[in-house]
Amino acid sequence: MESQNHYYGHSSALARYAGLTRPRHLPGLLQHGWTAASPLDTHFRDFPEVGRPGGRSNRSLFVWSHESRSWDPAAGDRRSVAIGAPWHYLCAVVGARPAGTGTVILPVHGIATQPLLGDHAAVARAWAETEGPSTVCLYHVEARDPAVVRAYADAGHRLVTLGTRTDPAFLGRLHALLTGAARVVSNRLSTPVVYAASLGIDAAVTGDAMRLAGERADDAGSLAGRWPEFYEAGTAPAARTAVARAETGADALLPPEELRRLLGWDRRQAGPWLDHWLRAPLSRTVTQLGRRASGPGERAPSGDVPSLSFGAWFVAATEYLPRPLGSAPAAPAAPLPVGPTA
């Protein structure tokens, strides 16, 4: 229905599992990452009528799991359908891989509208001491920041990235990265950590969690309280894997023919196409303009950073514009190398 359905190559993963060579539009909204809150209030907040009684009955909210500790579907005011994470559909297509080697680190990342605050050099050095020189995967935002790249390179780490979230090869690159590792580490509980653990890969959260602009100091700490299995060194690997499988809906996967039927991919439909190119962009534009009009003045409420200029806000808002659907490679591609720049 909307561009977020195709983030990270998720629609490509679903399509290949369903026996299609190219992705199609979805009749609703697809959860596009692990979240420490309800996806109904985060990923789907800009389309509040979808899934609501009396709303558009032919559009659904497709979530990963109804077993996550982060939310209770029975307490929500919108109906959702648990289908499992696209990650597991990709894993089912790719099949088992040899045991990986070495450590992969995926630092918490910022976004255009919410930068990451903290000392990257100190975090990079601390990981070099505890994990040894490792492969560090930077989100595309930090991969374009010369200071961040130098901080990790100077600490002896090898740097890669996975592309932007609109790159259909993103999930395949992440799969190659995680399954090629013996250990996966981040300083914040996040999607790739949960993905790795769901496959039985040693995964842990260690180091300074840093802070996103506007975030409260205790926000990161609350994650450790709710998901201690990823923070406590003595946790049995099987216990961590069980939690990760529940969070990602590993047992909710549908057979290919049922997935095609549920997503309307067993027939041609004009509605999802019109949603993607016309209705959803119009709805998103109205929401974004309203949010901009009621936003902060010269500084964000926390005082962390100045509010975005109109130009910067406009660039961030256009990331949600629809674009033609690309198709991911048939086999997972390797992550993209990142080199230090002057």
Rank of each mutant, 00 (worst) to 15 (best):
R291Q: 15
W71K: 10
S186V: 06
R69D: 07
G132S: 01
A250T: 02
D202P: 00
P228W: 08
G200A: 06
V81P: 02
G156L: 07
A99Q: 04
G118S: 07
P133H: 14
L40T: 14
V305H: 09
A126W: 11
H109K: 01
Q4H: 13
R165L: 14
P115D: 01
D208I: 08
G290Y: 15
A143Y: 08
L321R: 05
V104G: 05
V93N: 05
A18Q: 06
H175Q: 11
D167V: 09
A153S: 09
A155I: 06
R59G: 05
R16K: 09
V194Y: 01
R245P: 06
R291M: 13
R268M: 08
R52D: 00
C91I: 00
A203F: 02
R16G: 03
S60R: 15
L106Y: 08
R226A: 14
A75T: 10
A333Y: 06
T241D: 01
A330M: 08
A316I: 00
P192T: 04
A122Y: 04
L199D: 00
V123Q: 11
P39Q: 10
G132Q: 07
H140T: 10
V160T: 13
R59T: 01
G221S: 13
A244L: 02
A331L: 12
Y7H: 14
R279S: 14
L90P: 03
T206V: 14
W227I: 11
R299V: 14
G295V: 13
P332C: 01
L274M: 10
P23H: 04
F62R: 08
A213E: 06
F170E: 03
G100I: 04
